[in-house]
Every structure is written in C-alpha cells, then in structure tokens.
C-alpha cells in the first residue's frame, strides 16, 4: 500500500492512517477527533475552493484544512 500525505488524496479514495505528525493544540485536536494511526478514513469531498477537505471516519464526517491535513500520512488502497 503506497503511503500518501492526506492532502494528496483524491476524492473517494480511502486508506488507513499511518502517522500523525502534528504537535501541540493542532495535534491534540486531530487526535481528539479519532484521527490516530490505525483509523480507516475516506475522503468524501472538498469545499468549493478545494480547501478544506471532508473525511469520513468512525461513522462521522470531519473537515480540516489542507495545511492541517499535511501532518497526516495515510496508507491508501490502490
């Protein structure tokens, strides 16, 4: 499974979070929402200006900015 940065993922692409490199408040917020290694996610859409990105995980929808997605690495399914 290739490893991609979350920002580079395409719509409807899914994968498993491999690493979250954010620290401090952002890191905390990301993890609070369940974005921890091992969680399955799918990109379900992007805002009209291509940023932020919307994700589907653990049965809910989450949105974060592209520059926040940069800290998250995902093993994607081909």
């Amino acid at each position: 499974m290739p490893r991609l940065n979350l920002r580079q993922m395409k719509e409807n692409q899914s994968g498993v979070i491999a690493a979250v490199r954010a620290n401090g408040e952002l890191g905390r917020r990301i993890r609070d929402m369940g974005l921890v290694p091992g969680t399955e996610i799918a990109v379900c859409g992007r805002a009209p200006l291509y940023d932020p990105v919307a994700l589907r995980l653990l049965g809910f929808t989450l949105t974060l900015r592209n520059n926040e997605a940069d800290f998250i690495e995902v093993d994607v399914e081909d």
Partner: peptide, 8 residues
C-alpha cells in the same frame, strides 16, 4: 485549528 465535525 479548524478541525471540525460536519454533523449529520
């Protein structure tokens, strides 16, 4: 951080 839930 923007990280936000889009509630159903």
């Amino acid at each position: 951080p923007f990280v936000m839930e889009l509630p159903p």
